[in-house]
C-alpha cells in the first residue's frame, strides 16, 4: 500500500489536546456516541476542548453555494486556530469538509477573499489547523487501545464499512486506501474480532439520495447485506449507521450494525444495554447477542 496514500503523518501523532468537533448528527440524534467517544478519547490521555463550532457545513450548503460553504468552514477552522488547537472530528463528512476547505485555502488569493468575509464576524484564518478523525486517533494509538480490551470479542465475526466521506478522495483525506480499506479492519481485530472481507466493501450507503430514490438505494443495501458473511457490520460513520439500520427495517434483514465506538465499548466490558443496543440499534439478532456471551477458551 502506498504510504503516502494511506497517510500516517508523524508530526501529528502524540498530540495531547484537541478542539472537539462532534458535528451535528451525533450530538443531536446519537448523543450516546458522543459520550462514549469523549470517554474513550479521555482514557487515551487526550484532552478535548469544546469551542464555538457550527455545522461543518455539510454538502447541502456546498451544493447551494461553494464560496459560502468555504467561508462557513473557514469560520470553524478560524475558531480552532484562535484556540491554538487542531481539530478532532467524529464524523466523516465533517472531516472531508474541513480538510477540503483547508486544501482550497492554501490558495492565498482565495484565503484573502474568505478572510474578508470573516472580518464581518471578527475572525481570521491563517491556514495552520490540522484535522484528525477519531478513527485516525484510535489507529495511531493502537497499542493503548489493546489495553482497553477487557473482554476480547474472539467469538465475533465482523465485516467493516468505513464510509465514503472518510475514504474519498484518498489523496486529500489520506486516511486509508480507498480501493481496499484496512484500518477499520485492523481496529476491529485489535479488539479480538475475526474480520471477514467482502467484495462490496467500498459501496456507498446511499443515504444522500435515500429520500428521493428509496427503491434504488434499497437495492444497493440488499446487495451489500447479502455479500456479508459475518455476525455484524461495523461502520465508521454515524450516518451510515442510521442508514443501515433504517434500510434493513424495510428490507426485513437482520444483520446487526454497530458503530465502531459501540464495538470498542463492548470490548471494554460495557453491556449491550450500555452501548445503546437496546435503544439505538434497530436491527437485533439473537445469534449475535449470544456470541457476545461466549468466551473462547
Amino acid at each position: 500500500m502506498d504510504e503516502q496514500k494511506a497517510g500516517n503523518r508523524e508530526e501529528d501523532n502524540n498530540q495531547k489536546k484537541y478542539a472537539f468537533f462532534p458535528g451535528c448528527l451525533i450530538p443531536i440524534r446519537l448523543p450516546l456516541f458522543e459520550k462514549l467517544s469523549r470517554d474513550f478519547v479521555t482514557n487515551l490521555g487526550v484532552e478535548l476542548i469544546d469551542m464555538d463550532f457550527t455545522c461543518c457545513p455539510n454538502y447541502n450548503i456546498r451544493d447551494r453555494n461553494r464560496f459560502l460553504w468555504l467561508v462557513a468552514a473557514a469560520r470553524n477552522l478560524a475558531i480552532a486556530e484562535r484556540g491554538k488547537l487542531d481539530i478532532l472530528t467524529l464524523c466523516g463528512e465533517c472531516t472531508q469538509t474541513l480538510k477540503a476547505a483547508n486544501e482550497l485555502l492554501k490558495d492565498k488569493i482565495l484565503l484573502l477573499k474568505v478572510n474578508k468575509e470573516l472580518e464581518k464576524i471578527n475572525v481570521q484564518y491563517n491556514g495552520t489547523v490540522k484535522i484528525k478523525h477519531i478513527l485516525e486517533l484510535f489507529y495511531e494509538s493502537k497499542e493503548k487501545l489493546t489495553g482497553f480490551v477487557k473482554k476480547p470479542l474472539e467469538a465475533l465475526k465482523v465485516s467493516t464499512h468505513t464510509g465514503c466521506h472518510l475514504l474519498r478522495p484518498s489523496a486529500m483525506l489520506k486516511f486509508d486506501d480507498a480501493e481496499n480499506p484496512k484500518k477499520l479492519d485492523e481496529l476491529s481485530s485489535i479488539l479480538g474480532c475475526q474480520v471477514i472481507d467482502y467484495s462490496t466493501k467500498t459501496l456507498c450507503c446511499g443515504v444522500a439520495v435515500f429520500a428521493d430514490y428509496k427503491d434504488s438505494v434499497l437495492e444497493s443495501v440488499k446487495e451489500k447485506i447479502n455479500d456479508i458473511r459475518a455476525d455484524a457490520l461495523i461502520v465508521g460513520c454515524a450516518t451510515c449507521f442510521l442508514q443501515y439500520n433504517k434500510a434493513q427495517l424495510i428490507l426485513k434483514t437482520d444483520l446487526p450494525v454497530l458503530h465502531y465506538i459501540q464495538l470498542l465499548g463492548l470490548a471494554n466490558g460495557f453491556s449491550l444495554e450500555e452501548i445503546g443496543y437496546n435503544s439505538i440499534n434497530r436491527i437485533k439478532n439473537k445469534a449475535f447477542e449470544e456470541k457476545l456471551n461466549i468466551t473462547v477458551p
Binding site: Y59, R62, D63, R64, N65, R66, Q96, C164, H165, L167, R168, P169, S170, A178, T202, C204, G206, V207, A208, V209, D212, Y213
Partner: peptide
Amino acid sequence: WKCATCNACDERCPQGVNPYEVLTKLKN
C-alpha cells in the same frame, strides 16, 4: 441531485477533473 456524494468519480478520474467538484459547481 441524484448524486450520492460518494466521491468514487473523484477518486478514479485519470485526468484530475474531479467530477464531483464539477457537479457541485453545476449545482451552484
